[in-house]
């Protein structure tokens, strides 16, 4: 059986990647609002996903305020696809 990607097999990181799956770009406050995570924790998990190349992080200044936006990369999309396939395989074995 395939191993589950340890980077995605964590509640907050999986939530972030899943949120980014169906939008083109989302900013930090949107992700914070939807995941109900603390800023510090979310920042750490975003950095981990970014270092792995799963998401692309853009930091800019908009109207004198810093803005951090994230988008899913092709590598991240493939990783999530692979992760879901592994989950299906695992659950399929449990049922049969």
């Amino acid at each position: 059986m395939r191993e589950l990607d340890p980077l995605l097999h964590s509640q907050l990181r999986l939530a972030v990647v899943s949120l980014l799956l169906s939008v083109e770009e989302a900013d930090f406050s949107y992700l914070k609002d939807k995941t109900q995570a603390t800023s510090g924790n979310l920042s750490v998990q975003i950095d981990k996903l970014s270092e792995a190349g799963y998401i692309e992080v853009k930091k800019e200044i908009v109207g004198k305020k810093p803005r951090t936006s994230c988008r899913l990369t092709d590598k991240g999309r493939d990783a999530l696809k692979e992760y879901v396939e592994s989950l299906k395989e695992y659950l399929g074995k449990l049922i049969s």
């Binding site: 964590s10 509640q11 907050l12 990181r13 995570a37 992760y83 659950l91």
Partner: peptide
């Protein structure tokens, strides 16, 4: 939400 390990079923529920 925290950085905790989840089981397979929770993962699917979380994604959807």
């Amino acid at each position: 939400m925290e950085d905790r390990k989840i089981n397979e079923l929770e993962s699917l529920e979380l994604i959807s």
